[in-house]
Design a protein around this nucleic acid. Structure first.
Length: 102
DNA sequence: GCTTTGACTCTCG
DNA sequence: TCGAGAGCCAAAG
């Protein structure tokens, strides 16, 4: 069926599929959407202000937070409460908490 | 309708 | 191994 919704809305759907204690990267999300616009994914979330989307579970491929509306520090603590471990400014065991949307 | 910006990624040095 | 620069796609102005 034809999805008339914008790409950003597709991002929410994918990001919202991420369970607690797991994270995903913009690249994977973009690939799941069938596009290579990695930047568009992040930008879409930012422009939508993460209304109902756990945008804090979306990080870059480096395992870093990048920048969020809540603040990188605040989110780091938030993710830690979710069960995500951090190594400095990066996610610890990133591959293990990486959700591939199977 | 065209131009600029952007929460990124990849390759080269 | 770490750092800097160029590139690609989409949305907003």
């Amino acid at each position: 069926m034809a999805e008339k919704i914008s790409l950003n809305k597709r991002v929410w759907t994918v990001v919202k599929e991420i369970p607690s204690g797991k994270v995903s990267t913009y690249k994977i999300v973009a690939e799941k959407l069938g596009t290579t616009a990695y930047r568009a994914v992040g930008s879409a979330l930012n422009k939508n202000r993460c209304q109902e989307v756990p945008c804090h579970r979306a990080v870059n491929s480096s395992g870093k937070i990048g920048g969020f509306v809540y603040g990188s520090k605040n989110k780091k603590k938030l993710l830690q409460k979710e069960g995500i471990q951090f190594d400095g400014d990066k996610i610890y065991e990133f591959s293990k908490v990486l959700y591939k949307f199977k």
